[in-house]
Design a protein around this nucleic acid. Structure first.
Lengths: 185, 185
DNA sequence: TGTAAATATTTTATATATTAATTAAATATC
DNA sequence: GATATTTAATTAATATATAAAATATTTACA
């Protein structure tokens, strides 16, 4: 779902808005960037995800699971490995895997090494479905970004990698003093 | 949830991968950009959304609904207006609104003008919760983007607006020939 | 060795999301 | 004015997501 699709960068004039939330000048730019990032991702995601759903009757979540399994090239992969790579909770991956197993897209077995662990692998059917989805997915994404020239795409990629690195650093810096309710700084 | 968190830009060597999906050279760059866009958004969303959930016991979806209602400054807003602005389905907004009404964050009434339509407004409680969330949200987003300088933020904003505009144009161009299963071009 | 702690996954409860079908009312058209 | 179409929202069925608790197993270590 969309999130924060509101430009808070204008805290308002104050007219008829006595207790308006106070947003600092320095935060406005960050909020505008976050808003654009969110809108851009959600809009394209809705487009590509909607087509994936309509054409292949599969969700982006399932496509992600298959994509990650594909990287293991036919080998078994631990459930935890997949769930962390697709950025979903352990509880969610269990249900997702259940449904994908029921549809014969993937198969699950107990790990031979660690009896706590389970492993996943694509089935032949899963591989076929994945290949079909992959081709369409790549074309749809490329279509969505059609109007952007290669130089701008490369600039964007570099900037987004910077943002992710900066965010990771922020997290690791603040990991000692975990946020208490109401105060983060 | 995360999506497409797999870099398809390398279609592989072909070794032990006979039927590998074919991805054109020109699509690789688009896929890399899409991957970074997705990862960047999802990672920050997980951080900010997780804190919002933990600290304020509210989802980003609810924050979005309150944000949109806030723009109406105390006036009633049509349910459809809100659902389209937060980019969610009519079915979802009904359930979301039900829960928010039950928690006294917002109130709902039949529209006086159009008897098909319903309207929403923040309650005093909702406004108070929104104000608290807004301050934290702005700070968390700013923290997440702490390491990026203002010039790069502005570059990113401009580029993302370009991407959204390009995507909208693509959609309106292809709206006549809607994609049939398996063939989009 | 025995016990505590950590790890991997599942289960449970619930929230959030989609699509399709339904209901009700407004609008268009003849 | 009667009928068909469109519009607005809800309902129903189901998928996807989270957090918290439970289960089972491995690892650490006194």
């Amino acid at each position: 779902m969309a999130s924060t699709l509101e430009d808070h960068s204008d805290p308002g004039t104050g007219a008829s808005d006595a207790g308006a939330p106070v947003i600092g000048e320095g935060q406005k730019l960050s909020l505008s960037l976050w808003l654009q990032l969110m809108k851009c991702t959600k809009e394209i995601e809705a487009g590509v995800g909607g087509r994936l759903r309509k054409v292949h009757r599969q969700s982006l979540a399932r496509f992600d699971v298959l994509s990650q399994l594909h990287r293991f090239g036919g080998d078994w992969a631990a459930v935890g490995e997949i769930s962390s790579r697709v950025m979903t909770s352990s509880g969610n991956i269990t249900a997702l895997v259940d449904r994908m197993v029921a549809e014969d897209l993937i198969e699950r077995r107990a790990s031979p090494d660690d009896r706590r662990s389970h492993q996943l692998r694509m089935t032949g059917t899963g591989r076929a479905v994945f290949d079909e989805m992959t081709a369409d997915h790549a074309r749809w994404v490329d279509d969505a970004l059609d109007g952007i020239d290669d130089v701008d795409k490369q600039r964007l990629i570099a900037l987004l990698i910077d943002v992710r690195r900066a965010f990771e650093e922020t997290k690791s810096e603040s990991h000692i003093a975990q946020a208490a309710p109401g105060e983060t700084r």
